[in-house]
Computed example of a mutant assay.
Amino acid sequence: MADSGLLKRLGRMLTEDLDEIEDDRIQRECRAPGAQRAVDCVRGDEATMVGELRSVQTCSRSTKAGVSAEFFDGTDTVVLKWMGRNRIPGIEPGRRVTVRGRVAEVDGAKLMYNPYYELHAADE
């Protein structure tokens, strides 16, 4: 029985788009009790989500100082923005995090301003 599951996964890996496989992996690994999926969150929701940071950017101009990160949980992308910060230790691409805050929407993109975050250990 275990062999048939292995063969199914292998067949799927050989025929499916690599982006879809990566999305499925992230989605499976980011399931957590009490966490919402990003795709289900809408503007105004207070949400807790678990996912990975795909990219991190900093802006050091005094009028727009801040850190911006692309958060992905396998279902949708949410932009995280921390205002007034030049750098946040531990906020780096590939890092798994739990974020909590109110979802906003700007030009059709989901955002979370100054979210509370928890960094996950690298081996989780």
Results as ranks from 00 to 15, higher is better:
M1D: 09
M1Y: 11
M1P: 11
M1Q: 09
M1W: 09
D3P: 00
S4M: 07
K8C: 03
L10Q: 06
L10V: 07
R12N: 12
R12Y: 14
L14N: 07
L14T: 01
T15S: 15
E16S: 13
D17H: 10
L18S: 13
L18V: 11
L18K: 14
D19E: 13
E20G: 06
E20T: 04
I21P: 00
I21W: 04
R25G: 00
I26A: 05
E29K: 11
E29V: 04
C30Y: 04
R31P: 00
A32R: 15
A32T: 07
P33K: 10
P33S: 07
Q36D: 11
R37G: 08
R37H: 11
D40T: 15
C41S: 07
V42S: 11
V42C: 07
V42W: 08
G44D: 05
E46K: 13
M49A: 12
M49D: 04
M49W: 04
V50R: 12
V50N: 07
V50F: 08
G51P: 04
G51M: 06
G51F: 09
E52W: 12
E52A: 09
L53S: 02
R54K: 15
S55L: 05
S55M: 01
V56P: 03
V56S: 04
Q57C: 02
T58P: 03
T58F: 06
C59Y: 09
S60H: 15
R61V: 10
R61Q: 12
T63H: 14
K64R: 15
K64M: 14
A65N: 08
G66Q: 06
G66S: 03
G66A: 08
V67A: 09
A69Y: 07
E70P: 00
E70G: 00
F71Q: 05
D73S: 06
D73H: 01
T75P: 13
D76A: 15
T77W: 08
T77Q: 09
V78N: 06
V79H: 09
K81Y: 09
K81S: 08
W82E: 02
W82N: 02
M83R: 15
M83L: 13
N86Q: 11
N86Y: 12
R87G: 00
R87E: 08
P89R: 14
P89N: 14
I91R: 03
E92L: 10
P93G: 02
G94P: 05
G94I: 02
R95Y: 01
R96N: 02
T98C: 12
T98E: 13
T98D: 00
V99T: 03
V99H: 08
R100Y: 03
R102K: 12
E105T: 04
E105A: 03
V106A: 03
D107S: 14
D107L: 12
G108S: 06
A109P: 00
A109W: 04
A109Q: 13
K110E: 06
K110H: 10
Y113R: 09
Y113F: 15
N114M: 03
P115A: 05
P115Y: 05
P115W: 05
Y116R: 14
Y117A: 03
Y117S: 01
Y117M: 05
E118H: 11
L119R: 02
H120Y: 13
H120A: 10
A122R: 15
A122L: 11
E124K: 10
